[in-house]
Every structure is written in structure tokens, then in C-alpha cells.
């Protein structure tokens, strides 16, 4: 038996919005610790990992570890039926073929329940080691979204370079070139949410497909800030912390200069 209730149901709604363009099918892996989702896009270029801790839920019960395989478009459709203020309860039997979603409005005057047919998904699961990154950038998620949207006008590949000066996002395309430099706000008196904090051990420069970065910014509504971690020659991590409950992390493999040819 698995049951989880979340008073702030909008988190689940936003989470699906953040997933559904990138990932078609995925498993929700449920355990005593909480919920987790790991899935790759169809080209296996990026990976998305969601973790929601059990203590972040208002009620959480998971007797046996289960995996609930869902189609993200379909789950998204059902979650659209919930209001932003609704309380959402997820329920599934241990060997169930269905996931029950119950939406209760704030003053308990409307209770709706939906059942989603589950599917068996055996996708590759990747083991992601805990690594120390050479640079981490914490910035407002809105700001990051804006930069990515702006740069997409000019081209499809973007270079992110972190130096002492700040973070430089640059793009080159048929139209011309574009650069956005974001400086650290250290020392400037600002709200924590609006601050840009750059933690740099050594300079890093990597190139990415803007298409995928744009998919990542669909998670902007989940939190006010985003944390970008980079090291040379490894995938970038774009993390959106979700309130008190967990996070959604996106990994994107860089584009590299082909050395062998």
C-alpha cells in the first residue's frame, strides 16, 4: 500500500509541467524515504531526476517499494484537473495497475478522484555519483529563463563560461552573436532570492544545446532560484530546489570538439 498526501498540490502540477516536454514515459519509484523519478529524453542527451522526501508530505505511507510507470502527457492531463489550491493524495496498491489521484478543494466542498492506468517501463537507470563541482552558480530562476529564451533567438548552441568576472552565456548563429554576462551580487545588499552567488574553484567553459536548456526552464515555477553546477568535460547540473520537500535536477551532456577526427 502506498499513500501520499500533499496540501500544496500545485507542486505536483508544476512538476509535471517541468517534465512532460522532456520525458515521455517514466517511473515514480516509491520507498520509505519518499518519491523519486529518474528519466532520460529520447535521445539520451539529458537526464532528469526528481526527489521528494517523505517528510515533506503531510501524510506518507509506503509499505513496499514500488514503481509506478506513467506516461507524462497523460498524468499531466489528469493533474490539469486539479486546482492550484487543491490538496492532492496519491494512492496505489502494492501490485496495482492503477494510480489513484484524489483532489480535495480547500474548503472540502469538492472532492474528485481519478485513476491513471499504469504501464511497465524498463528504461535504463543511470548511477549518478556524488561529485564536487568546480563551479556553482546560484541565481534567480526567472533570470536564467530569460537568458535562455533570449539566446535561443540567435542560435541553437550556447557556451557557458565561468570566470572571475562572472558567468558569460554566449551564442553564435546565422544572424550574429550574443553575450550575456551575469555578475556576482556579493556584497550588494539584496534579498536572498534575487542574489547571484558564484562559487568558483577554477574557470570552466562548456557548450550546450539550447533546446535542452530551454526544456529545463519549464521548471522555473517550482522555485525562485536555480543552482547551476559545472566541471570541465562532464554534464552540467541545473537544479531547482522545491520548497521544503526536495528538488528537480536536470543533467545535460555537453557538446565537445571531436578530437579523433
Amino acid at each position: 500500500m502506498f499513500e501520499a498526501r500533499l496540501t500544496n498540490g500545485s507542486i505536483l502540477k508544476k512538476l509535471l509541467e517541468a517534465l512532460k516536454d522532456l520525458v515521455t514515459d517514466a517511473n515514480i519509484d516509491c520507498s520509505e524515504e519518499g518519491l523519486s523519478i529518474q528519466a532520460m529524453d529520447s535521445s539520451h542527451v539529458s537526464l532528469c531526476a526528481v526527489a521528494l522526501r517523505s517528510d515533506g508530505f503531510d501524510h506518507f505511507r509506503c509499505d513496499r517499494n514500488i514503481s509506478l510507470g506513467f506516461n507524462s502527457q497523460n498524468l499531466g492531463k489528469i493533474l490539469k484537473c486539479a486546482d492550484n489550491t487543491d490538496m492532492i493524495t496519491l494512492k496505489a496498491e502494492d501490485s496495482a495497475d492503477n494510480l489513484t489521484l484524489m483532489f480535495e478543494s480547500k474548503n472540502q466542498d469538492r472532492i474528485s478522484d481519478f485513476e491513471l492506468k499504469l504501464m511497465d517501463i524498463d528504461a535504463d537507470h543511470l548511477g549518478i555519483p556524488d561529485t564536487e563541482y568546480k563551479t556553482t552558480i546560484r541565481m534567480p530562476s526567472n533570470e536564467f529563463k530569460r537568458i535562455i529564451t533570449d539566446l535561443q533567438v540567435l542560435g541553437d548552441t550556447c557556451t557557458i563560461a565561468v570566470t572571475k568576472e562572472g558567468v558569460r552565456f554566449s551564442v553564435t548563429g546565422d544572424l550574429g552573436t550574443g553575450n550575456v554576462l551575469v555578475r556576482s551580487t556579493n556584497g550588494v545588499d539584496k534579498e536572498e532570492e534575487e542574489a547571484v552567488v558564484i562559487d568558483m574553484e577554477e574557470p570552466v567553459e562548456l557548450t550546450f544545446a539550447l533546446r535542452y536548456l530551454n526544456f529545463f526552464t519549464k521548471a522555473t515555477n517550482l522555485g525562485p532560484s536555480v543552482v547551476i553546477s559545472m566541471s570541465p568535460d562532464v554534464p552540467v547540473v541545473v537544479e531547482y530546489p522545491i520548497e521544503q520537500i526536495g528538488h528537480i535536477k536536470y543533467y545535460l551532456a555537453p557538446k565537445i570538439d571531436d578530437a579523433e577526427e
Binding site: 517511473n27 519509484d29 532520460m40 535521445s43 539520451h44 542527451v45 539529458s46 537526464l47 517499494n65 514500488i66 514503481s67 510507470g69 517501463i121 524498463d122 528504461a123 535504463d124 537507470h125 543511470l126 548511477g127 549518478i128 555519483p129 544545446a209 562532464v234 554534464p235 543533467y251 551532456a253 555537453p254 557538446k255 565537445i256
Partner: peptide
């Protein structure tokens, strides 16, 4: 474009 599996090793899915 590099692929995800060239950085992280594939392991058994929980299910």
C-alpha cells in the same frame, strides 16, 4: 553532442 551514458554508468533499475 555527448550522450548521458558516456558519463554515468547504467545500473539496474529499481523496478
Amino acid at each position: 553532442q555527448m550522450r548521458m551514458d558516456s558519463f554515468f554508468t547504467v545500473k539496474k533499475a529499481p523496478n
